[in-house]
Design a binder for these strands. Structure first.
Length: 812
DNA sequence: AGCACGCCGACT
DNA sequence: GTCGGCGTGCTC
């Protein structure tokens, strides 16, 4: 309900301000903050979100809104301040922030579409058009609707714009604005009920009788449910309905993303330690903002603590948000929450279809659930009255979104808790350096879980120095005798082994024997990877593929040597070494088909697999009780990346992988092969000692003024001309440096580094440069970048792109 | 984003 | 001479 004559609206366009519109009296009653409106903007119509009512429109003649697109707000009014905070902090248009937060499919805007006129059709049929015109007409007719953008993009004609204009003038085509809505709508399904009795008698076939009996038994059944029993039901139902035997009604259904049903469970008795942690939060926080870092070793029962806190919160009539990392499957944590809380839980997740996502969202807005569990976007869940926010595995990189609005859900969870006045719990066995530093600085309170619930010892971790096998023959260089023996022993005991290598494919470094050049992608600056399964070389960045039979593009030689190895190669080596073992591989290649992941995971759990080889998707979040051996083929792959967090990520990954061993009753064993056994990261991983890692990492971060000892904003500049991007990057950097110089108070507090060429200088035919801005003051950084973007010199022109990444996770 | 307005090069 | 390219600015 709006009482004022005007409203403030955030439009879904890349503009930083919001705009004022007039609301006609008859629409005031149906308008509320959080609803979408269709508004005229320039000469088009776009979606906007109502932010608030407004008394006046100083200085402008406000346009009238065209329509209200919702009958219920999509998010509570209280969430708008959160959106505004995000917009300001990440320097991102408010309308787009809201659009990112909402499930996709809510946006509507005008799109220019091209149509063939009657005369155009006639001229085409009678060959009265030029070949160029014919091509345009045909490509429009090919599709149901053709947008102007598509047409221009798909055409190879360089003067396509002129041609279109001419054709429009000659009345062969028309271009007009069509209001486009994308994606999902509320799902309504047909339900079949018993009819009021037949008006006309129909002859009863066997099938008809069976159908009627079913409907009668169930009273009410969905058409899909019916179809499962009687495949021809849709055809059968129509005459029956017309004759009055049954009734068909439409009703909204909530699509259920949770394929597997979960057995309900009962809360177990908490251990004394868990009890203490739960108390600690309950006693202190109440309705106040209070951030915690829960550091608990694997198997110490973090999830049970979360569930107890959530239970407590919903008892009090408040809501809870639980964030889990984005992984290939519905995670263990998610299943356990559903087992405990049943239909009080909504799930938000990238694996959901657009429609399923929309339904989950509506469940939250309509207050049908109390708990949301999901990946990073769940931090936007439209709850009011939040009682607790939990971030599980808070160190996980997947909380950072790397496209569009580049937010970090873990950081936003803390912000949201602050705005809502509630506790926030970040949990991890291997906390991020940042979060732990917050404990050191007493910004976060630390909660500790130090004993494993089942008292199983941590796995024994053995390092194998790969330098000793440099000259070894055959597979010994990759699967060292120590590892091979351990696998053999594991198989002989009838246990399972997990072999981890964070690189997929067969050969990762194909080199021409004659000219010495490596085979690289046409569009990106990386070498291609050979995939035996597909019989081709692939580029892992842009997807470009070439046949294995190609000749060297540099010299035409046919002799290409396959150096470097990935999971596919390791799999084939294991096959040769252990012909009796049942093998599976889990990486992007083997799981790309729908349902493949579940199939592999199930066969591991059912022990139909003896050895599983995989990338990090295997390392995260899964619980395989009968895996007793974990082999890490090369522990330092991610260590040498040019990125200040490379060490942190490696430590976390190795700790995670090692944690897969010995989750059942038999103690686990981990063999880690490495070229740097003496490196502190590897050493800390071996001891599973977070604190040792942290102590060693901190001085290095401090010395180089990397987070958490500074804040950073990274500017990513790209374009399709190498020379132009270079010049553009230099210009932007120069503007920044000049601004810092000019501001007395910034001189010593802000550092502008670069521009430098990105570590991968070209991806998908775009040349990449970057600038890094560091400062201890986040506010100062934010201000600097904002005023830089006000300078017309830094506006990206033809073909250039400028991306602002606040708190970048990876600098590559 | 997308559209109008305004300024320069290659064609009827 | 103009048509149509692209850079610039604005949209309540």
């Amino acid at each position: 309900m709006i009482k004022t004559p005007y409203i403030s609206v955030a439009v879904t366009l890349p503009v930083m301000q919001s705009y004022t519109y007039r609301v006609p009296d008859q629409l005031k009653a149906v308008c509320s903050p959080g609803m979408r409106v269709l508004v005229p903007f320039g000469r088009r119509r776009v979606t906007g979100y109502i932010l608030s009512g407004q008394e006046s429109c100083d200085g402008f003649t406000a346009k009238k809104i065209l329509d209200v697109l919702d009958d219920h707000p999509l998010f509570p009014e209280s969430q708008i301040s959160f959106f505004k905070w995000i917009s300001n902090y990440y320097i991102h248009p408010l309308g787009d922030v809201i659009k990112t937060a909402l499930p996709s499919g809510f946006d509507r805007h005008d799109v220019s579409c091209v149509f063939v006129t009657r005369q155009g059709r006639h001229s085409l049929n009678n060959a009265k058009v030029t070949p160029g015109e014919a091509q345009v007409l045909e490509s429009i007719l090919q599709k149901e609707s053709c947008t102007l953008k598509q047409l221009v993009k798909n055409s190879k004609n360089t003067t396509i714009n002129a041609l279109i204009r001419r054709m429009e003038k000659n009345d062969l085509i028309t271009v007009s604005a069509v209001l486009k809505k994308d994606g999902a709508t509320i799902k309504k399904e047909k339900f079949i009920l018993c009819g009021d009795g037949p008006k006309t008698a129909l002859r009863m076939s066997k099938k008809r009788e069976k159908l009627l009996a079913l409907v009668k038994k169930k009273q009410e059944i969905s058409l899909t449910g019916l179809k499962a029993k009687i495949p021809t039901a849709p055809a059968l139902i129509k005459p029956l309905a017309e004759a009055g035997y049954v009734k068909i009604i439409q009703r909204q259904v909530f699509r259920d993303p949770l394929g597997d049903p979960v057995e309900p469970d009962r809360p177990p008795e908490l251990t004394a330690e868990q009890e203490r942690v739960v108390r600690q939060v309950q006693d202190k926080s109440g309705q106040r903002f209070s951030p915690y870092l829960l550091s608990g070793i694997t198997g110490s029962g973090k999830t049970e603590v979360y569930m107890r806190l959530v239970w407590d919160v919903i008892e009090k009539g408040r809501n809870a948000i639980v964030l889990v990392p984005e992984i290939s499957l519905i995670s263990q944590t998610e299943r356990r929450f559903r087992a405990r809380f049943g239909d009080k839980v909504a799930v938000i997740h990238s694996a959901l279809s657009k429609g399923e996502l929309l339904d989950q969202w509506r469940k939250i807005v309509l207050k049908k659930v109390k708990i949301v569990i999901g990946a990073r976007s769940a931090v936007f869940a439209p709850f009011e009255n939040i009682g607790v926010i939990i971030v599980d595995e808070e160190h996980d990189g997947s909380y950072k979104q790397e496209t569009g609005l580049r937010y970090n859900a873990r950081d936003l969870a803390v912000v949201r808790a602050k705005l809502n006045g509630c506790p926030v719990i970040l949990g991890s066995a291997t906390p991020s350096v940042q979060s732990y530093q917050n404990v050191v600085l007493k910004r976060f309170e630390e909660l500790k879980l130090e004993t494993r619930i089942n008292r199983h010892p941590l796995p024994e971790i053995i390092l194998v120095d790969l330098k000793n096998y440099k000259d070894a023959r055959g597979s010994d260089r990759i699967i060292t005798p120590t590892l091979a023996q351990a696998i053999r022993a594991c198989l002989d005991q009838g246990k399972q082994a997990l072999i981890f290598l964070n690189r997929r494919g067969f050969a990762t470094f194909p080199v021409c024997m004659d000219c010495g050049k490596s085979l690289s992608c046409k569009y990106c600056d990386i070498t291609m990877t050979m995939h035996k399964g597909h019989n081709e070389y692939q580029c892992h960045l842009c997807g470009y593929a070439r046949s294995v039979n190609i000749k060297c593009p540099e010299c035409g030689s046919k002799k290409i040597k396959l150096l470097g190895f990935g999971t596919e190669k390791v799999e084939s080596m294991l096959k040769a070494l252990f012909p009796d073992a049942r093998l599976a591989r889990m990486d992007q290649d083997s799981t790309s088909q729908k349902g493949a992941t579940i199939k592999i995971l199930k066969s591991i759990r059912n022990r139909n697999i003896d050895i599983v080889v995989g990338t990090q998707m295997l390392a995260k979040g899964h619980d395989f009780p009968s895996i007793t051996l974990v082999g890490v083929i090369c522990a330092d792959l991610s260590l040498s990346l040019p990125d200040f967090r490379a060490g942190e990520r490696t430590f976390q990954l190795l700790a995670q992988v090692a944690g897969r061993a010995g989750r059942g009753d038999t103690p686990g064993k981990v063999i880690m092969q490495t070229y740097n056994p003496e490196h502190f990261i590897i050493e800390a991983s071996r001891k599973q000692d977070f604190f040792e890692f942290f102590q060693n990492e901190v001085p290095y971060r401090k010395a180089l003024m990397y987070p958490p000892f500074s804040r950073m904003i990274q500017l990513k500049l790209s374009g399709n001309s190498a020379a132009k991007v270079k010049v553009y990057a230099a210009t932007v950097a120069q503007v920044l440096k000049a601004m810092v110089e000019a501001q007395e108070n910034q001189k010593d507090l802000v550092q502008v580094l670069g521009p430098i060429e990105a570590s991968i200088p070209k991806i998908s035919s775009r040349f990449r440069w970057q600038i890094l801005v560091k400062s201890p003051s986040s506010a100062m950084l934010n201000q600097l970048i904002k005023s830089m973007m006000d300078n017309p010199k830094t506006k990206p022109k033809s073909g250039m792109r400028l991306i602002v990444d606040v708190d970048p996770y990876s600098l590559m």
